[in-house]
C-alpha cells in the first residue's frame, strides 16, 4: 500500500511538527512521539508501517525501537493496513447493557464480514473496542474521530451508506487540522 509512496511529511506538516516539539523542554522532544504517530498514521494510509515508524524516529532523533514499543502499546495505532473506514464498536458493560451486541451483529450481516475483518473492497474494517467514554449515549461507535451515538440498526444502515458514498479515508486528523 504505502510502500511505493515516499515517506515524507509535507512542508506544512513539518512546520506543525516543529511547533509541537517546542511544547516540551529542551532535549525532551520524545514527548512529541504520540502526537507525531497520530499525524503519521493520518498521512500514510491509516497505519504505521515499519518504514513510517523509522521515519518518525529520525525526526525525533530517537532509536527506532523506542517508536516500535510505543506504537505497539497503544490501541489507536494500527500496525497493519486497515479499511478506509475503521468502524470501532464499543462493547464494554454500559454499551453492552443497551444492546451493543445487536449492533455488532447487524454490522456483520450488512457488511458480510466478522469482527476483525475488512470488506473485500477495502472500504470497511470492523472492530470491537473497550469503553470510549460515551456510555450515556450507548450503544455507540467511533469512526475516524467521530462518535456515533444512541445507535439503532437504522442509524447503522444510514451510516454505512454515508461512508460508502463519501469514499474518503476516515481519520482522527480531519481536514489536515493537525494539532
Amino acid at each position: 500500500m504505502s510502500e511505493t509512496k515516499t515517506i515524507q511529511f509535507s512542508e506544512e506538516t513539518m512546520a506543525t511538527v516543529q511547533r509541537l516539539i517546542k511544547r516540551y523542554p529542551e532535549g525532551r522532544q520524545k514527548s512529541a512521539l504520540l502526537p507525531l504517530l497520530h499525524i503519521a498514521q493520518a498521512e500514510f494510509d491509516g497505519w504505521l508501517s515499519p518504514a513510517v515508524m523509522d521515519y518518525v524516529a529520525v525526526i525525533l532523533s530517537i532509536k527506532p525501537i523506542e517508536v516500535y514499543e510505543v506504537a505497539s502499546f497503544y490501541t489507536m495505532y494500527n500496525l497493519n493496513p486497515v479499511g478506509k473506514c475503521l468502524i470501532e464498536v464499543c462493547q464494554t458493560g454500559p454499551c453492552w447493557s443497551r444492546g451493543s451486541d445487536d449492533i455488532v451483529e447487524h454490522f456483520e450481516k450488512k457488511l458480510g464480514i466478522k469482527v476483525g475483518e475488512t470488506t473485500s473492497d477495502g472500504q470497511f474494517t470492523l472492530k470491537t473496542v473497550e469503553c470510549l467514554g460515551s456510555c450515556g449515549t450507548a450503544p455507540m461507535l467511533q469512526c475516524g474521530g467521530d462518535f456515533y451515538e444512541n445507535l439503532t440498526n437504522d442509524k447503522v444502515d444510514t451510516l454505512i451508506e454515508k461512508l460508502r458514498a463519501n469514499g474518503q479515508r476516515s481519520t482522527y486528523m480531519k481536514d489536515n487540522r493537525v494539532m
Partner: peptide, 10 residues
C-alpha cells in the same frame, strides 16, 4: 498551557 493526546490506553 498545552494539550497532549493519548492513544488508547486506560
Amino acid at each position: 498551557l498545552y494539550v497532549q493526546p493519548g492513544a488508547g490506553a486506560y
